[in-house]
């Protein structure tokens, strides 16, 4: 690692002022599972690293008037261990569980996963399918936006150098919404996603799809929604054929690339399969409720 200064923030406000003070060549350090790797590979050469792991106001999981609030510093392990999330959002537990291994899940944070913004992030799809919103704090106060607006491109979000992600909120209307997440990686442990997918749905009258939201990871510059597939399903009867057709349509919503991990063509096959399977699993969850 190259030399840098190190400073700790005790709160989100303090983090913002430290970032403003030392910017723009500063880096925010939370779980560090990505940042430290980048620092060691000299991908960043910051003057100052601002550690926010002591900012208690960025922690905690709670259900409030707005919905389910998860602080940006909530670790993947905390998500897996939270009784409310276990009960209501098994997809979030599963998504957290597929990240790295125990050690990295104990360090890595939800906010860090979203801010790092790699297309293959595992936290994104289930949250996006649940229409999650995020709160961003900067020198001029806070702003709220949909998760989709937060992502700009590979490794790029709307965050300015002096802003931090405060929290992630799943809106009240979606609490308990049947959701499933599936990830396909090159091995079972410590895998990066070739493709991941999440589907959230309610079952409408006459066993029809209602408010279906489908999200895909690792198949476009950022985590995306699959509107063609969603539109197709809305109001249709829940059948295996319709789920399979939604899978095919989801492929059209995606722009997978060829890389050394997999070909675009194989990724398209996976999108269809994973979309279909998450819809099916989410429907099963709905039936069990």
């Amino acid at each position: 690692m190259r030399a840098f200064d190190f400073v700790s923030a005790e709160s989100a406000d303090q983090a913002v002022s430290l970032l403003s003070e030392h910017g723009p060549n500063v880096i925010v350090l939370a779980g560090g599972t990505d940042i430290l790797v980048d620092l060691k590979h000299a991908k960043h050469d910051p003057d100052v690293v601002v550690d926010i792991t002591r900012a208690d106001d960025l922690k905690g999981i709670e259900v409030n008037d707005e919905g389910l609030r998860m602080g940006a510093l909530v670790t993947h392990t905390e998500i897996m261990d939270d009784p409310y999330i276990q009960e209501n959002f098994p997809a979030l537990v599963h998504a957290a569980h597929t990240i790295g291994a125990v050690q990295t899940r104990n360090l890595g944070t939800l906010g860090g996963n979203l801010v790092t913004c790699v297309p293959s992030m595992d936290s994104g799809p289930a949250l996006m399918a649940l229409e999650a919103e995020v709160t961003v704090a900067g020198p001029d106060g806070t702003r709220r936006m949909d998760l989709e607006e937060f992502f700009v491109g590979p490794r790029k979000t709307v965050l300015e150098h002096n802003e931090v992600l405060l929290d992630v909120i799943i809106p009240k209307r979606n609490l308990g919404k049947p959701t499933d997440f599936l990830k396909f990686g090159l091995r079972k442990g410590q895998a990066l996603a070739l493709v991941n997918a999440a589907s959230a749905l309610w079952v409408g009258e006459g066993n029809t799809f209602k408010d279906v939201k489908i999200s895909l990871g690792a198949v476009a510059p950022t985590v995306i929604r699959a509107p063609a597939a969603e539109d197709f399903l809305e109001g249709r009867e829940i059948t295996p054929e319709n789920m399979a057709e939604a899978g095919r349509l989801a492929v059209e919503d995606a722009k997978p690339i060829d890389d050394f991990r997999a070909s675009a063509s194989y990724r398209r096959d996976l999108i269809a399969v994973l979309t279909k399977r998450t819809l099916d699993n989410a429907y099963r969850l709905a039936q069990n409720d």
Partner: peptide
Amino acid sequence: MPVNACLML
């Protein structure tokens, strides 16, 4: 909690 010591400052 078990963590990777190489990933913390």
